[in-house]
Design a protein around this nucleic acid. Sequence first.
DNA 1: CGTCGTATTATGGTATACCATCATAAGGCA
DNA 2: TGCCTTATGATGGTATACCATAATACGACG
Lengths: 245, 245
Amino acid sequence: MNGTMNNKLFAQTAEPARDLASLRIETPPVTLREMALDRLRDAIIAGLFNPGQRLVERTLCDQLGVSRSVIREVLRHLETEGLVETAPKQGPIVARIDWRQARQIYDVRIALETTAVADCARNADSKTKEKLKAILQDLDRNSRKNDALTILTATTDFYETIFLSGVHEIAWDIVKRLNSRISRLRVMTLSTTNRTVSGPARMREIFNAIERNDPDAAAAACRAHIEEAARIAQSLLVPVDQPKL
Amino acid sequence: MNGTMNNKLFAQTAEPARDLASLRIETPPVTLREMALDRLRDAIIAGLFNPGQRLVERTLCDQLGVSRSVIREVLRHLETEGLVETAPKQGPIVARIDWRQARQIYDVRIALETTAVADCARNADSKTKEKLKAILQDLDRNSRKNDALTILTATTDFYETIFLSGVHEIAWDIVKRLNSRISRLRVMTLSTTNRTVSGPARMREIFNAIERNDPDAAAAACRAHIEEAARIAQSLLVPVDQPKL
DNA sequence: CGTCGTATTATGGTATACCATCATAAGGCA
DNA sequence: TGCCTTATGATGGTATACCATAATACGACG
């Protein structure tokens, strides 16, 4: 692994060019760093590392097969994202989440998502509505699988469509980042108390309000959606003093 | 500069311990990286580097007197914060800001700050109110200096007090980070069209609403405060196509 | 037997060396 | 003279070497 490995996994699945921009040879500046970043972030989000677990740099080097330079820059990135904390004199650990933080994250999400949803209800074009409808139908079709990950993905798509239907990339970025910090919570929440049913139901409420261009109702439904998730999260997080999670 | 310089600026002004925690010997893990991070961030915010300007790693090494490892980790951090962009194959540059982004940032600020302000109006204790009042009085006293930086600092203190009077550290973190991305804009905004007068006036409106525990009025005043800033920013940013700023 | 001191090791902090690539400039050929 | 080719330098990407420190374990001394 000495920098002289460049002929790697670029499948180059050259789709037929839809426009001139996509004609470009897919430049592969997929730096090691970016790959390592995605891998490690996914691993943390997926719960492969436990909160509070130490992330020893040299160990990560072996596990990811890259050098410490890469690992350290990745850790800096994840630190800024809030997924990793670095205790002075002890190095990086996977960030812990407690109810105090989680509650704040849900609060920020409420503030940002209700805004985006209301805006979408005001301005959504038919194409956006179609897309939202398709996502929900897909979800219905697969709902009997009760697959937490499927629902999570669909929920993400749903809100992404809403955010990006307006000019809200920055807000969406923030929400995405916050969600990654409570990812474990989200999965646990979904695995609990019929959330696999109520979640999609709430989303349908939001969609209905958007379809009939009712910003206030849409915002209210969105708030209800998040508050419900927050309540479940609280029940998971608060009872024990400093929960394992 | 070879890592063997440790005996530096720890004034160790040991105040009489107010509690057990503050008894701890102030550990000085002020790493080179942290210092470099603050320096570089401040330099960018202060406008020492122009937007779009290339940040050549080896040059920064000389300018800050540290090695490339440090510089690169700092750049990763600032990149995640949004202050630095890294063009593929060309390296990092100071992030540019256009009106599309700025408008979004003002939108997020409105969503978060109105929430915090309303919350503060609902729950603020007398101590918080006193502190807010003191900040405004200080501002009045110095207002004839018309010093943009003074007003900016006071504004920051004002909102920080509001955010932290409730449990909103995370939201405040987000707002701080967003503000750093529009720092130049904020300074320019303040230097324009009597903003040095209207800004404090708006803040006093907010304070009055908080003092009489009127969340809706407080939120409305806050929204007006930010919208006004946004309007000024727009007038600065939009006329020219891709402004120099 | 307990406690204190010392040696060892693990870890993060820092600096530097090397490589691939891209932009630019210089030079040769038509 | 103009364009194409080639050499060179600048830059970021990556790996590694070295150092300081903190935690741990082990041994000596009381």
